[in-house]
Amino acid sequence: MTTHATGTREQWLTARLALLETEKALTRRGDELARQRQALPWVRVDKHYRFDTESGSATLPDLFDGRAQLLVYHFMFGPDYKAGCPSCSSIADSFNGFFIHLANHDVTLTAVSRASIDKLQAYKRRMGWSFPWASSRYSDFNFDFNVSFTETQQRAGDVEYNYQRGHHAMDAEPAPAPVKQFADTCGTDAKTYARDRPGLSAFVLEDGVVYHTYSTYARGLDALWGMYPWLDRAPLGRNETGVWWKRHDEYAQR
């Protein structure tokens, strides 16, 4: 027998209408937050970055692919990984469905990682993805946008991630269990795994000049994690006691 509160349809409707007011207030707050994001000052990007893509070498303006706006998902796939991060992979599973819609709204979505383009393309095939994915292996792009770090920075506690500098949870000794677990699934050790981090950065191209407009990291990416809005509406919510998700081709068939 359930231990959760039960009631009549009328009681449920009364409670649901009260909750609806709270949901509407959150929606309005979200709208205002989006306006504040868009009001941030733009920062001109003059540095030249080189990327490898499936079409060949590309610059940052090239990644816009003829559009005015560019959204970059900083996908955790370091040069020494053998597979992409499981968390980033679960986020990226939703990209196939909407990157074409963004492309037809003057926005290019691409993932960027430090792994070689050959590794990225092989992993795309494994995952069945078709969205653009570029390698920044031979540029400072990941380091300049604070999603990759050197071994020296990591050892010295000089990592600046999510707008905080110092030692971060991912760099703890011993490595947190989820970090060790994910590192193992990526075919690398925890320290190497933690030298790349997830994030999203936004850019605009205006009059031939690229501007950086926004970046977010860590839990700032929650809204992109497609399964969680669904779980937040499921009867038992997220119902988590630890890491439960895997790459989509690693689940047992049910």
Score class of each variant (00 low, 15 high):
199 G>T: 06
182 F>W: 10
243 V>K: 10
4 H>C: 11
185 T>R: 14
83 A>D: 09
152 T>M: 09
51 F>V: 04
176 P>V: 04
249 D>Q: 08
202 A>S: 14
7 G>T: 02
207 D>S: 15
124 K>M: 12
65 D>R: 15
230 W>R: 12
219 R>N: 15
105 H>K: 13
44 R>S: 12
242 G>C: 08
66 G>K: 08
91 I>H: 08
89 S>D: 14
225 W>P: 00
164 Q>H: 14
88 C>A: 01
169 A>P: 00
164 Q>T: 15
124 K>T: 10
207 D>E: 15
251 Y>C: 04
153 Q>G: 03
161 Y>R: 01
236 L>R: 13
12 W>S: 06
136 S>Q: 09
42 W>V: 09
42 W>T: 09
96 N>F: 07
168 H>D: 09
69 Q>F: 12
182 F>K: 11
186 C>F: 06
1 M>D: 09
50 R>A: 13
95 F>P: 00
132 P>C: 02
94 S>K: 06
194 A>P: 04
176 P>R: 08
207 D>C: 02
186 C>E: 06
68 A>E: 15
61 P>M: 07
245 W>L: 12
132 P>W: 00
194 A>Y: 04
42 W>L: 11
159 V>G: 00
249 D>A: 05
132 P>E: 00
155 R>S: 11
137 R>Q: 15
164 Q>I: 15
135 S>T: 07
135 S>G: 03
7 G>K: 04
126 R>D: 11
138 Y>H: 14
207 D>Y: 07
200 L>G: 01
128 G>I: 05
49 Y>I: 01
198 P>T: 09
135 S>Y: 04
192 T>S: 12
196 D>K: 03
120 L>C: 02
